[in-house]
Amino acid sequence: MYENVVVPAEWVAERSGSVRIVDVRDAWEFDGIGHVPGAVNLPFAEFRSESGDEGMLPGAEVWESLLSAAGIAPDDDIVAYDDTHGVFAARFLVTAELYGHPPDRLHLLDGDFSAWNREHRTTTESPSPAESEYAVGEPEQSPLVDYDTIRAALDDPEAVIVDTREAWEFAEGHLPGAVNLDWRDLVDDDTRGLKPANELAGVLADVGVTPDTRVLLYCNTARRISHTYVVLRSLGYDDVGFYEGSLTEWTERGGPVESEAE
């Protein structure tokens, strides 16, 4: 189990000089609204691609270029945040893990920029980091699972396939036997961060997701499952599959889909 996967603002503030902080919001938000002091801006659109290495990953060369320009080294501790409960920041962290960044050095700011802004200083001054030579590597244990793995899991009573989209999307069409867990059910609208651990355990248990189950995650394009994946990792789940292709690939390949009407 990795420690400090999801970290409070105080944790980040105390380590502002020793961690690399990444803001994945659009540039106009970073520059115009302000950002966490010392943060570099790597907008979500810059590391999101439909023609990368695996599904929606941007490609190794693109990733190396982005992190090198931001002055990030392969062994840096990274804290990522957005202003949308962490879902876009989580996608950044999962991408980093899939490209070989040590998982124990990847952290999600609990809450988001709005949560930080309530009690901590912000700035509009952009840093000018010295360029690094970031190189991707192979993860020690990749959470990626492919179409065939998910197809086989449809008949596996030991696995639970989790659809992290909204209820109306699930009702319109989902993988046979999947359970619906809207990623937003794991966050608190008031604090903007994760719900308390005991509440999270209850929400997850209600859909059959417990630490001893094999969990396979999907959504439409792997953004929303990134948040759920990070949350499960923070709770000590060690058998979580990340279906990068998600429903986009599934339907393109003719995978079976069922709806609530059926």
Results as ranks from 00 to 15, higher is better:
H35P: 13
Y134V: 11
D112S: 12
P103R: 15
R192A: 11
E50S: 14
V203I: 09
R151S: 11
G59H: 06
P43S: 10
R214Q: 08
L186F: 03
V187C: 08
P129G: 12
E125R: 10
A115M: 11
R48Y: 14
P129R: 09
I21R: 07
D26L: 12
W250K: 01
A45N: 13
V203C: 00
E166R: 09
L144N: 09
W28P: 07
G137W: 02
V79W: 03
P74K: 09
T248F: 01
G193F: 04
A70E: 02
G71L: 05
G137F: 09
A130K: 09
E119F: 15
G100P: 00
V12C: 04
D31N: 11
S16T: 10
G177Y: 03
E244K: 10
D155M: 04
H174R: 07
G254M: 04
V203L: 01
V215S: 05
I21S: 13
G111W: 03
D77Q: 15
D190E: 14
P143L: 05
L66C: 07
V36M: 05
Q141I: 09
P256R: 08
V162E: 00
G236Y: 08
S18T: 14
R91L: 02
Y147L: 10
A153I: 00
G17P: 07
V7H: 02
K195A: 04
L186E: 01
R118A: 15
V179P: 10
N41A: 04
S114W: 08
A39M: 06
N220K: 11
V94I: 10
T191R: 00
Y81W: 08
E260Y: 13
L109T: 12
E119L: 11
D104M: 06
N41K: 07
R192M: 12
T228S: 05
P196K: 13
D31Y: 09
V12R: 02
W183G: 00
A70R: 00
A130D: 14
L67M: 11
V36P: 00
F47I: 09
P139T: 06
R15P: 14
N41F: 04
A27E: 13
D188M: 00
T213N: 14
R25C: 06
W63F: 15
D188C: 02
L200A: 06
D83H: 14
R151D: 03
V209E: 00
R192C: 03
E138F: 08
L98M: 05
